[in-house]
Nucleic acid binder design. Sequence first.
DNA 1: GTTTGGCACTCGAAGTGAGCGAGTGCTAAG
DNA 2: CTTAGCACTCGCTCACTTCGAGTGCCAAAC
Lengths: 344, 344
Amino acid sequence: MEEYIDTAEPVGSKTVQARAGLDCSSATIRNELMALDREGYLEQPHTSAGRIPTAKGYRLYVNELMAHRDVSHEEADRIDAGFSGGAEAEKLISQMSHMATELTSYPSLTISAPKAATVKRVDLIYLDPNSFIIVLLLSDDTVKNKLVHLPFSFTQTMITRLAAVFNTGFTGLTEEHITPELITLTERSTGDTMGLTSVIAGFVIEVLTSSRGVGASVSGEANLLKLPEFKDPDKAHRLINYLSDANNLTALTGQPDFGDVKVLIGPENAAAELRDSSVVLASYNAGDNMRGIIGVVGPTRMDYSAVAAKLSYIAGGLSRLLGGGSAPPSGFGKLMIKGEEHDG
Amino acid sequence: MEEYIDTAEPVGSKTVQARAGLDCSSATIRNELMALDREGYLEQPHTSAGRIPTAKGYRLYVNELMAHRDVSHEEADRIDAGFSGGAEAEKLISQMSHMATELTSYPSLTISAPKAATVKRVDLIYLDPNSFIIVLLLSDDTVKNKLVHLPFSFTQTMITRLAAVFNTGFTGLTEEHITPELITLTERSTGDTMGLTSVIAGFVIEVLTSSRGVGASVSGEANLLKLPEFKDPDKAHRLINYLSDANNLTALTGQPDFGDVKVLIGPENAAAELRDSSVVLASYNAGDNMRGIIGVVGPTRMDYSAVAAKLSYIAGGLSRLLGGGSAPPSGFGKLMIKGEEHDG
DNA sequence: GTTTGGCACTCGAAGTGAGCGAGTGCTAAG
DNA sequence: CTTAGCACTCGCTCACTTCGAGTGCCAAAC
């Protein structure tokens, strides 16, 4: 297994003997290999070649045989350094995605949890008779703003009044609560005949809608090109294309209901494009009982233990920083690897 | 030339005869080809192959022979649709970068002009005794905000006073004006002993600093993999890696002092990684007499006229939307292609 | 003097086949 | 149950051949 992970070449009986330092002859090992072959853990690309692990073999290795590994001190330091900046959520996640790519040299992907955010507070800053700034504080403590220029003029008094009405009438609402009726009602109670209310409500809806969608991204796709598995540019191109579609990403990860780390090996992936690649995912606590996902995509022949340890460490850090008031997930620090058997 | 652009295969005398529909025999064409070969416009990969254009040949073609082409109606409509969203500058540029990739099927790059922004206005929104929002309006009308939580409490009065002082003392300043002395002075005049001033000033500096850096990005790198020129994954990997470094991008484009469109053919590029690729750049007016750049990277064998027309159209649109008050560049709409002869 | 047909020549691409060798399965002895 | 031995398989490499597109050059033709 480990020899194949290192070299990507079929492994023969003598190589196993040498690498594992077993005190039995290659013939004995051949017999064992034959048995494993029969049981479906190994296969031969052609009759007179060594063996390579099957997906079933990888599964066994990942579930039972693989040595648990922690990140090295240098790696931990490097990851911690990335966290120390203390940036906002979105930036932090993107930084960690790049960190994952750097540490594993595989493309990494992130999927941030959807947030059913509500409005916590609306502020309007009057600039001049034609412009003002809308500042929106959401329930998850993100702040969004927009500078509005209008072709007609209004007074500071009107802006102040609008802010007051929005602050009492719109707090706690999700976007489906903001109906045309509510807007008409607000217009009436502020005496707004110029459509300022619609402008502001429009921005509120826009922000709430966009915060609802899950954010998915990939980075470091070019790393695939270094791998012998992707020496065919077409194959690489297909996978990269697949990964570049955010919908595919959310589909591949499924629900983040797994414990800490999840490994999807080759054919366990639903998508054809991923059938001979593997995906390692770690989920993190993103506050409000929501979970985000960070993961990498690589060849089936992947150093699962090392990759899992790194992602787990990164996800743990993200949980700590983004999880906010909530307690960190109970399994944090301990590496639990779960997978799904895929029917097929 | 055009045959080679289409097929990427060396072109022989008979093919030229057929494609161009010349009423002379292949022998005559052979004589002409030999002459062009001697003068350095064409070369042969090996003795018994057809001819391919040299960089010098491309230069001649681009400068003098190439038919000027406009974008098709469908393309124009598609680009216009991309503009109609009317988003903020950063998003708009990124959208147009993707548009360029889609239309040309080559990776596209953007470099946005650095802005020496200053503070136009500072607002502080008091939320509760431990938190407030900083809202920063910059001279280029972008708005930045930050939610601040502090481990000690303060009053609304203090926040109001700070906002007033910042608004009189910090407007019109660039980041180098914000010295420790100014902060001390501000602290004294507001009676702030808790370090609120430093927190706010820190954010101001952060925003001004980040707005100063040039933003450079690439998208659609994977498109290279489809090209026969990049059937060697290593070569593709080297170029993609090169492009992923923002410093390289700013270096390759040089100063945006060219008219409308600039074409850099193969060895005209300073960077070794680009020696057998070409870059087409279009510059746009980004307001305040600053210029941004949008461009694509592709094989030397590239349909320069089509690519240039598309980029020029996109850049024109960006100028219109971002150029703000300033007049659009005089050359807009007319395609001017300039290049640089590269010594060597 | 330019154009044209003819012709020998070049050289990469594609195809062929022998030899190599890593690795196998099987068998028989320990 | 392990091990040495052995015949066998089959992809890889490499030398060799063939094929053909395309060339340069020359002499005849317009």
